[in-house]
């Protein structure tokens, strides 16, 4: 009996999640010792997905007909399917294009959409869970190396992987004073006190609505959290959960509303999952 087969694919993605695998360096050697990397677009030359594999990592969301086909093929051939990264599990930053109809998108970038020899674009970006059953998720844009290794290790042992359930504030080293600024601040405005909670100082830091596990790395370099890991268990929609929390402390953020700005702040990685999505698909003007 050979080693269990691992398949990795990239749908509408930027290879950032695959880079996490590559960046494992020596640990990638170890992984290659435990599994047979049967198909991986960046790492192997094998063109076809094998008929049967144990674990599949899918990076990327669904934007084209080709993405749909690959996602379905992987689901049918692989025992355990893991949504690898925020595009696969949430739609990711490409999901921000969902506020704009496909006609306008293609017109603004290409004129007429290319249609020879390339797969057709679908009206919106979707997370893979919209199309196939997903067994587990490794969150993040990109995921944490250690979490990726831990999830794979658990799966290889036949155990269910577990993700942390707290929020980023739990890991953040900034000081909270519980006094909230009444003015909102943008990223280009230098913080008065980099040691103090950025949300309190008026920045839209998604920490409260974001799953922990990243060691609040961005906060360590004085950059507010973007929410790339999505929400923790129990909060179905990250953006609405953050809106919920913010409404209690930051009324000024409600002023000067614009969908473009709001979605980039509250739903930067999760807009494709927003429940009202199929209204967005009608290409309603904003």
């Amino acid at each position: 009996m050979g080693k269990p087969k691992l398949v990795t694919v990239g749908l509408t993605s930027d290879a950032g999640c695959h880079m996490v695998l590559v960046n494992l360096h020596e640990a990638l050697f170890d992984l290659a010792g435990q599994v047979e990397i049967a198909h991986s677009y960046l790492l192997t030359d094998e063109k076809a997905i094998p008929g049967r594999a144990e674990i599949a990592l899918i990076e990327g969301g669904v934007r084209t007909t080709h993405d749909e086909e690959v996602a379905k093929e992987v689901r049918s051939k692989c025992k355990t399917v893991v949504a690898f990264g925020s595009c696969a599990s949430l739609g990711g930053i490409p999901g921000l294009a969902n506020t704009i109809g496909l006609q306008e998108l293609s017109h603004s970038v290409y004129g007429a959409l290319p249609n020879v020899g390339v797969p057709a674009a679908l009206p919106t970006v979707r997370p893979i869970s919209d199309l196939i059953r997903v067994d587990y998720v490794i969150p993040g844009c990109p995921p944490e190396a250690s979490e990726t290794v831990a999830v794979l290790a658990a799966l290889l042992k036949g155990e269910a992987p577990r993700l942390p359930v707290k929020n980023v504030c739990y890991e953040c080293g900034k000081q909270q004073t519980r006094a909230y600024s009444s003015a909102s601040r943008r990223l280009h405005e230098r913080a008065a006190d980099p040691q103090r909670c950025l949300l309190e100082q008026g920045y839209l830091c998604m920490g409260p609505a974001t799953r922990s596990g990243c060691r609040a790395r961005c906060l360590e370099v004085n950059i507010p959290c973007e929410g790339c890991r999505g929400s923790s268990d129990g909060a179905e929609d990250q953006g609405l959960a953050m809106m919920d929390a913010l409404a209690t402390v930051a009324y000024p953020l409600v002023e000067n509303y614009s969908l473009a700005r709001d979605s980039a702040a509250l739903h930067r990685f999760t807009l494709a999952r927003l429940r009202a999505n199929h209204v967005l698909r009608r290409g309603e003007p904003q």
């Binding site: 506020t99 809106m243 919920d244 913010l246 409404a247 209690t248 009324y251 953020l253 409600v254 509303y257 614009s258 969908l259 709001d262 927003l274 009202a276 209204v279 967005l280 009608r282 309603e284 904003q286």
Partner: peptide
């Protein structure tokens, strides 16, 4: 707080077409 949430949500609902 509810008023603030409703206000924000109204703007969002308008933006998404509802």
């Amino acid at each position: 707080k509810a008023e603030a949430r409703v206000l924000w949500l109204k703007k969002k609902l308008k933006a998404v077409g509802l």
